[in-house]
Amino acid sequence: MRSERARHNKIIFSGTVGAGKSTAIAALSDIPPVCTEAVASDETAALKKTTTVAMDYGLLNLPDGEKVMLYGTPGQERFSFMWEILSEGGIGLVLLINNANVDPLKDLENYLAAFKKFIASTAVTIGVTHMDRAQEPGLDAYRKKLAELGHDPLPAVFRADARNREDVATLVKALLYTLNPGLVDA
């Protein structure tokens, strides 16, 4: 496992189409996020009008002038080749799952499999979005699924509104504490 210093200052946001990755980055970023949204032309069009075709990029400016990059991966699985490239050297993964999708637990499984190597060397927190539209599966179902997939201890799974800066920040804070529970704010 690489030391903190060897890592890039980069937090990865990934997840299903329409889960709110771009929105979450926009909620947290100190700059207007750089998005590569395009008019959706494939099956994504049924879910939303535009979608991320390359990546989203936001920035957290730290008080000492250092920057933390917030990278959002494209949601479509045909872009999955980019996921590994984008996540290389990242601090950890915030995974957003759209609960209103047909089979969000399967989505969870697929994304965890895709990021398995990255998660093994870092950490993941999971934000379940759109629970106002689709209450089921509940958080307990996600936890059970994670246990079935062999995640012990279970990563943090929160209900999240990607538009809400506090929700997104809580996901990132949980990620940081997962990496080091002894962390204190500097």
Partner: peptide
């Protein structure tokens, strides 16, 4: 003099929210 990057991100988030 230079806390870890995780600590600094944490401080940023604690102050920002």
């Amino acid at each position: 003099q230079r806390p870890s990057i995780l600590s600094r991100i944490l401080r940023k988030l604690l102050n920002a929210v």
